[in-house]
């Protein structure tokens, strides 16, 4: 199942908000050898449903299998593979930077370029809060690493299709939402 030509795919799933659902999903990923590079879960627009965002490493075949096996789980209601170019993807990162007085300006300058906020300051540390897509957070972390990072906490991406692009040909497969499995399988 593990492909040599890895690429990242963003998949969202609408699932029942019941005990054990996350376990069912992570267990499926584990036993079928699929790689999750990030996972974020939270309540959806409905109280009884959660929405999950997975960033999955794999080629198209792997992603097709991931979406199908996700949907095979009884508690999973809808699975959508949203193509990278149409997706708005955000994650939140908290970055603790080891920076005394001599580096504070530099950290603040970098943070401001990334529209990140300094949310806590102590004698030796600054705590930076940043929101953005994965690349932006990676770049910010890289720059801050030169100054000295002591701790990073990232939420993993949450993602959504742009409303304006609905109906665009670029939306690859809303496979499962339409349940046209047979057509989807031939994509």
């Amino acid at each position: 199942m593990i492909s040599n030509t890895l690429s990242k795919h963003t998949i969202t799933a609408l699932v029942q908000d019941k005990p054990g659902v996350l376990n069912r999903i992570s267990s499926m990923f584990r036993r079928r050898g699929f790689n999750i590079s990030s996972l974020a879960v939270g309540q959806s627009e409905s109280e009884t449903l959660s929405r999950m965002t997975f960033v999955v490493d794999g080629d198209d075949k792997v992603v097709e299998q991931v979406t199908k096996h996700l949907h095979k789980l009884i508690d999973v209601i809808k699975v959508t593979d949203i193509s990278e170019e149409n997706v708005i993807s955000r994650e939140l990162a908290l970055i603790k930077v080891k920076a005394g007085a001599e580096h504070r300006d530099q950290v603040m300058q970098i943070s401001s370029m990334f529209r990140a906020n300094i949310i806590d300051v102590s004698k030796d540390f600054l705590l930076v809060e940043a929101t953005g897509d994965e690349n932006k957070i990676n770049s910010l972390i890289n720059l801050l690493r030169d100054i000295g990072i002591s701790e990073v906490m990232r939420t993993g991406s949450v993602a959504m299709n742009r409303a304006s692009n609905k109906g665009s040909k670029k939306i690859k497969q809303s496979i499962v939402s339409t349940r046209k499995w047979d057509e989807a399988a031939s994509v």
């Binding site: 949907h71 499995w181 047979d182 399988a185």
Partner: peptide
Amino acid sequence: IDPSEISKNIKA
């Protein structure tokens, strides 16, 4: 009847 079996082992 199981979509996940299609093209799992052999491409359809």
